[in-house]
Design a protein around this nucleic acid. Structure first.
Lengths: 217, 217, 217, 217
DNA sequence: GATGAATGAGATTTCATTCAT
DNA sequence: TATGAATGAAATCTCATTCAT
């Protein structure tokens, strides 16, 4: 890992091309890898373990995927190219296609959706977090790209509009986004720490806090 | 809060000094392990690397520490039992010994201090984050314990007082703490993502956001 | 008893053949391990040595066998569960299926056969002896089981018959067996001590002594 | 081990010279080594273990004893030079200084004494057995020497006398000795195999068998 | 003489990857 | 494509031995 951007970017592009003709076994492998990588970490997971959980032979893992690193990429690719942008997209377009009258309904539209997204994609998010910690520049850049893109085209304009309407605090847009994310990511942190979480309460309080914090009083 | 007082590295070295059953070489080993573990991750660091950086023979690592895992524990234990609680303690007492008149001065007292704490202890924090991701229950529990303890004895009462004075929003104390932390941890996240950060701006905007969000308008 | 029928090496190879889940290389590993373990002892034999003699890579040893101890078990198990009981069995049935008229022909039937058995199976017996000394309870119990079983079903009745006929001394059967074995094992001891042995003489004298000692005068 | 006679013989002679000025700690080391070597085997015992059981530092083991091999020699030396010859001697002189009237009293004089000797020196005998199995030529030669010496000067003449008197079977003297030993060593074997033993019974039956077997009827 | 930390050579073991079937 | 035995490089770990205190 952490061996520079090129390996990852190369593999990433190649993987993207091939990403549709997946056999059942190959899907099982990706599934098993996702589960194991995210629960134990990438380096703590062996090819044998993946094969076993996927119910295939070790060789089958390498039949399709050049190496373990490539398998990681293959696991992350759909996430980074499909799920995440889509999620960001939803966050951008769906959430922002309406012209919210006030910050409250704006926050209301985002928070519950994002918390559920975390629940649904917990494993994948944990895996990304792992890669960020181990300094995988490829993953990091991919993440940044996915965000910058969507955010700048969809979210930023909407925030600006709310600010101009005098409804939202006059902080730089990237900080507005940052605070939205960190408040929401607190939920992810709680899950990482095995803390008991109650979705209803989380939604209620995070919403309240964000509304209060982003609203111009 | 005085500069450097709650620097993990400082605290860690002090802790090491107090461990007078440790030889110089053993301290070098712990130091090298801390550095390598936090910069590359635990599994990405080999015994040979540690020995080399510590300037000792590989065997010397195992003379004192039963195995690599035990070395990790030896590195983390003083952090989790000494440095972290002490840092949390300072956070609790120092920051909260004054009776803040309003949320603004309360937030002002915390944010700059915590951001600098993150800067100074980036390596150690990253190591802890690594362990949380890899699901090290030991680390997780230690972290929880350190926090619950200090927070409940020092921070919670202060929050309550501010709330009773009608200055702070009426959210549960643990959520107040959660929002303080997540807003601050955003800075840690930015560093993990290699994003350019400007301390002055961070302080300014995080303070502004938290003040607005926690203040009762 | 026909020559070679109860040769451990033969029986061992047959057993190996029946283990059709073993590849050729794995059989070579077991064969090499048997040879090295019994000539040098278990702890004095390294994985590298085994691999070299077997003509495989070191890793191949551990591909099939979890660890060195497991390899020892794999070597001993067929000996203790297949070869040994079968050998004991032949000893029991073949030697005792006739109704010997007197102790002399009884002893005559056993001694030469057992001495040749020791010669043929010297390596395997030495390995077992090694394990007994190092207090391997597994091996010890297996050995006991193999013996108790066969002796009680086949040998004991024959001894009793000879005793009732007034031809054999009235000692407990287990002691009769013990004396037969120890007198014969003297030959094994001589070989361990690198003493010059002459099979013809050994047979002659051991037979004479046992006949005299077990006969009722 | 098993590295030729010279190492052993050299060490053996050097050890002999120094064998009197032992400090308390050194005696403890020898005792601990004897216990551990005989219960687990030589190679399965580490210097650290010996030091720990002896209650001394690891270095102290090597202060006096050149290396582990030398320690083994030092453990075996008193046995091979003192206990064993003395035992053989007793077996030779004590037991044979009387002119036994018959084989029965001759056997009676030997068996109980030897069985008790085995009990008393079980650990040391086991250690010797270990060395014999691992093919330690030094030990083997020492053993042989101790025996040949004593046997030929004391025992052989006595056996010859009994044979000439027509009381003992006319087998070669070395075989007579062999049968005496093996019958008695059966007891040692039973202990190795953790079999329940009753000294009274053993004495009774071994005596009976040997008497019958060696007596000229 | 006694200590035990330090050493380094070597042993065991793991595991990503290859390749013949 | 799928398999899983085989590989070998590298990692973890052990331990007899040395040496400064």
């Amino acid at each position: 890992m952490a061996n520079g951007e090129n390996d990852f970017q190369e593999l990433y592009k190649e993987t993207l091309k091939k990403m549709d003709d997946l056999t059942d076994k190959q899907k099982q492998i990706l599934q098993a890898a996702l589960e194991l990588f995210s629960s134990q970490g990438f380096s703590e997971t062996s090819s044998a373990q993946i094969a076993e959980r996927a119910g295939v032979a070790v060789g089958s893992v390498y039949q399709r995927f050049q190496n373990k690193q490539a398998l990681l990429v293959a696991v992350l690719t759909p996430l980074l190219t499909q799920a995440l942008p889509q999620a960001v997209d939803e966050f951008g377009t769906t959430a922002f296609q309406h012209s919210f009258d006030d910050v409250e309904s704006f926050v209301d539209a985002i928070v519950p959706d994002r918390l559920r997204f975390i629940d649904k994609n917990y494993a994948a998010l944990k895996l990304m977090a792992d890669q960020i910690i181990v300094d995988d520049q490829g993953v990091i850049n991919q993440l940044k790209a996915a965000f910058t893109n969507q955010m700048s085209t969809n979210v930023v304009p909407n925030i600006k509009r709310l600010q101009k309407a005098g409804k939202m605090v006059d902080l730089p847009e990237d900080y507005i986004i940052q605070f939205l994310f960190t408040a929401i990511l607190g939920y992810f942190g709680k899950r990482l720490l095995n803390m008991p979480v109650n979705m209803t309460d989380e939604i209620k309080h995070i919403t309240a806090f964000l509304t209060n914090g982003l609203m111009k009083h």
